[in-house]
Design a protein around this nucleic acid. Structure first.
Length: 466
RNA sequence: GCUCCCAUCGUCUAGCGGUCUAGGACGUCGCCCUCUCACGGCGAAAACAGGGGUUCGAGUCCCCUUGGGAGUACCA
């Protein structure tokens, strides 16, 4: 039997971290077993579903590199099949028409709550024989009220539910449209899904769905409920936790491979290993190694992984992305790939990298006052003058020569290299932080270096900041 | 309230009855390297929620308590 899984988001919002991980696990499981991974858009809630949300979800999955087989199935287009399934259940006696009004139901639930009971439909229309013409009705599932339904979960193990706890759920609304539980069962069966991998928030729906499979005479798939992801404070992930939409991570300069690696390790493990390539994940992923406990999202660990992937990437593979984040013209400055090469090990995100690269292409407008105050002293001017003269006299201008020049001047003056390197750094970059000064100047080139140092000295001497 | 799930360092986790004076990673804190920032190296602090059992032996099995979480819609 070939394994077939699916991801079934409802397009009522963004693809968030939790959904992305569910999709990832489902995808990894299918790919690991050489099976298929399908997509189904659960857009039966017409009020809240939007095409924009659908597009954003697909875009997020593509960016993460989670590819799906075939075309996405839109649940709303399968309504006829859902209605047929409901009719089949009525005919077989597994479902019935219910004429209860909202008011009636609310009153019933209120009474139950007041009595300290769990609000449940009491089945009052089960044996109703009249069929009032023109009265609106819903179709309810006649759920068994004795016995137990057991979910054999691949992650959680066997979970037992007393059937008495499950009431008669609505299959068809009064406008004739199908509800979630009916639609999922009908669609998963029609799509030939063998393993339903989804968030643990669906565990409570599972016994009802198993009953529906059985009533419809359909094979029950395997289930795997993976624990939820919580925000840093332990509560459910929500907007107030900052970035939750997958696209926000892309825009913040995270690499898809890093995010995938991080998400995979959130709830799944393979011994002590922390870093996994995509191929390794597919090769090693197993539902049996998925933990049962909800995980908190840890931005700092993601940052660490992203930095790791960033510094191990080929500079040329980062050029397009970095240029996008830079938003400045790079045609007149040093080769961007070379700039990336010296910046990638000192950046955690593409945004940081781009920010660090910007001064190579844009002359500093101002100089960080705190840096100036800290690094410019009386002796600085003499050292800088000596540096300018030395550079003018240099035959070749490369990192090694620049290093020698700076060191030579400092040794002669009997001071550490920082006494000269820092003022230069501030004058060429505007701040106290940059890649190694020799490589930085080499990339800027002799003319640009001289221009920035001279101009900077003049401006600071005017007392602008110093 | 009721039903269901979960419980090892701050965080992600290893552990599948004895190898645990509990391992790794992120983060934190020292030290080293050093022209800044990083990278890298070395080291440190840091956990089995509590209580009962079962067993020769429990982080590992069972029960209770506590604490989190999910569900409880004519949403998905």
């Amino acid at each position: 039997m070939t394994i077939r899984t699916r991801f079934a988001p409802s397009p009522t919002g963004m693809l968030h971290i939790g959904g992305a991980r569910t999709a990832l696990f489902s995808w990894l499981y299918a790919r690991h077993h050489g099976g298929e991974f399908l997509l189904r858009i659960e857009d039966t809630d017409r009020q809240r579903s939007t095409d924009e949300a659908t597009q954003v979800i697909l875009e997020g999955l593509r960016w993460l590199g989670i590819d799906w087989d075939g075309e996405p199935v839109f649940q709303s287009q399968r309504e006829a099949e859902h209605v047929m399934a409901a009719e089949q259940l009525i005919e077989s006696g597994h479902a019935y028409r219910c004429y209860c009004t909202h008011e009636e139901l609310e009153a019933m639930r209120e009474a139950q709550r007041a009595a300290g009971k769990k609000p449940m439909y009491d089945g009052r229309c089960r044996h109703r024989s009249d069929q009032p013409a023109g009265e609106p009705y819903v179709v309810r599932f006649r759920s068994p009220d004795v016995g137990q339904t057991i979910v054999h979960d691949l992650v959680l193990g066997d979970v037992v539910f007393d059937n008495a706890e499950l009431d008669d759920l609505i299959l068809l609304r009064s406008d004739g449209t199908p509800t979630y539980n009916l639609a999922v069962v009908a669609d998963d069966a029609a799509m030939g899904i063998t393993h339903v991998v989804r968030g643990a928030d669906h565990l409570n729906n599972t016994p009802r769905q198993i009953q529906l499979y059985q009533a419809l005479g359909l094979p029950v798939p395997q289930f795997a409920h993976i624990p939820l992801i919580h925000g840093p404070d332990g509560a459910k992930m929500s907007k107030r936790h900052g970035a939750v939409a997958i696209t926000e991570y892309r825009d913040a300069g995270y690499l898809p491979d890093a995010l995938v690696n991080y998400l995979a390790r959130l709830g799944w493990s393979h011994g002590d290993q922390e870093v996994f390539s995509r191929d390794e994940l597919i090769e090693l992923f197993d539902l049996r190694q998925v933990g049962k406990t909800a995980a908190r999202f840890d931005q700092q660990k993601l940052d660490w992984l992203n930095a790791l992937y960033l510094r191990e990437a080929k500079p040329s593979s980062l050029v397009d992305e970095v240029r996008r984040f830079l938003r400045v013209d790079v045609c007149c400055g040093p080769d961007l790939a070379e700039v990336i090469a010296i910046l990638q090990e000192r950046s955690r995100t593409l945004v940081e990298l781009a920010n660090g690269a910007r001064f190579f292409y844009v002359r500093p407008e101002q100089y960080d006052p705190k840096a100036v105050k800290k690094h410019f002293r009386e002796e600085s001017w003499g050292l800088l003058d000596a540096f300018v003269s030395a550079v003018e006299a240099m035959e070749a201008f490369d990192a090694e020569k620049v290093h020698d020049v700076i060191r030579g001047i400092c040794e002669q003056a009997g001071v550490g290299m920082g006494k000269l390197a820092q003022p230069i750094r501030i004058l060429v970059s505007g701040g106290a932080v940059s890649p190694p000064i020799d490589r930085t100047l080499e990339l800027l080139g002799r003319e640009e270096t001289l221009l920035r140092v001279r101009k900077g000295m003049a401006r600071l001497r005017e007392g602008a900041v110093s």
